[in-house]
Amino acid sequence: MSQSTVPSASRLRRTLDFALHVFWATCEQLGAFLIGICHQIADIAGVLSATIFLAFRPQSWTPPVRNVFARQMLFTSVDSIPAAMRFAAVVGVMGIVQAEMWIDAAGLSTSEVAPILWRSVVREIAPLLACLVVIGRSGIAISAELATMHADGEVEVLDSQGVDPMTFLVMPRVISVMLSVFCLAIIISITIMVTGYLIGSSVGAIRVTWNEYYGEISRNFERGDLVFFTSKTFVAGGFAGVICCLEGVRSSGRLTDVPRVASRAGIRALTAIFAISAILSVVFYEKLLVFKFG
């Protein structure tokens, strides 16, 4: 082999230095990204803790705050019921189609499939679907409203008048989102099961009476289902509400940025609820996919 084909020591050293530089630069960027995520989570958790603290103080619920909370509950929860029930009815029909496939393919009985459907609805589908409805219908609107108030100088006016923006603007909206997700998840769960039974019995996929169908579900209801349901709805709803509020009040203050702020709030809130749902599933089930911890 000629000497021209053998890399020189200096060339090898430069290549090694470049590779190390790329490696450490990548590690630095990854570390900065992870630190930024941790800072964001800490900010959200801090605001959520302050919101809960203020909500349990009777002094916080002045007549203007109660008025804001009532209007937000009407818009976020009550007005969202028709949309939530429509989505739940479609999901119920889809669930029955899957159940019929399980019954035919695996030879399972309805008494074996009903508890599986109920647990998947209560623990996974209903909380997630309720969060999607609330974020899509109200979360984005909250961020847009607060961003517009910031651009118009209303937040500064409230602060100059001695009104705490945290108590008047953030707290009632976050609490309303949390309660709305919880209530809508209950409505969605009931709608899915009732619609699924009605459609399933009409097409012959379910061949038992409603009392037998409901009896199988009630006999398999566990305390963990309630804990899972409550934690997912309140934690996910709290994070979604705080993210939408923070994006609104932290906007640049220009009206032209309001659509961008609203879109960013919706994406970040959706990302948060999916991450929270996955984390809580891992914690409660004590396994990641099929790998059990311990």
Rank of each mutant, 00 (worst) to 15 (best):
R268D: 05
I175C: 09
S281G: 08
T26P: 00
S143K: 03
L48C: 00
V133P: 06
Y285Q: 14
K287M: 10
T233F: 03
T167V: 14
P63G: 11
I192W: 08
S120N: 14
L280A: 10
F221G: 00
I44E: 04
F56Y: 11
L30A: 13
S263H: 11
V6L: 11
T167L: 15
Y214K: 11
G200W: 09
P58R: 08
F234N: 00
V68H: 05
R264N: 11
R14M: 09
V174F: 06
T167N: 13
F168R: 00
A185D: 00
D17H: 10
S111K: 12
A55V: 03
C131T: 01
D164S: 15
V258R: 14
E247M: 13
I142Y: 07
F168S: 02
T271V: 06
R250E: 06
S77H: 12
L226V: 15
A151W: 05
A83M: 15
L16V: 08
N211V: 11
R57K: 14
R173F: 11
R66K: 13
F168N: 03
Q72S: 13
V203S: 06
A42P: 00
S8R: 07
Y214T: 10
V249L: 02
L169H: 02
V47N: 04
I188E: 02
A147V: 03
T167C: 06
A114P: 02
T110H: 05
G224Q: 07
Q59S: 12
V258S: 11
V133G: 02
L255K: 12
P259S: 02
T167G: 03
G107N: 03
C183Y: 13
R11Y: 08
L74I: 10
W102S: 07
I279K: 03
L34C: 05
Y285H: 13
R119A: 15
N211D: 14
L280F: 08
S111H: 14
E112S: 06
I125V: 07
L30W: 09
M73T: 12
T26F: 08
A50D: 15
V181T: 11
I186A: 12
A114R: 13
L226S: 09
I103E: 10
G248T: 06
A269G: 05
L288C: 14
D257Q: 10
L255E: 10
T26L: 12
H150Y: 01
L226Q: 03
R57L: 11
P64E: 01
A114W: 02
V177E: 04
A265M: 09
R207Y: 06
E222L: 10
V93S: 03
W210Q: 02
L246F: 09
C27N: 12
F239E: 00
S252R: 11
G162Y: 01
I217P: 00
A55T: 07
F87Y: 14
I206K: 04
I273W: 00
A32L: 13
H21N: 07
P259F: 04
I175K: 02
F87K: 03
V157N: 04
T5W: 13
G224H: 05
V68R: 05
V290Y: 15
V157S: 12
C38V: 14
V177K: 06
T51A: 08
I125N: 00
M1S: 12
G224W: 00
D152R: 15
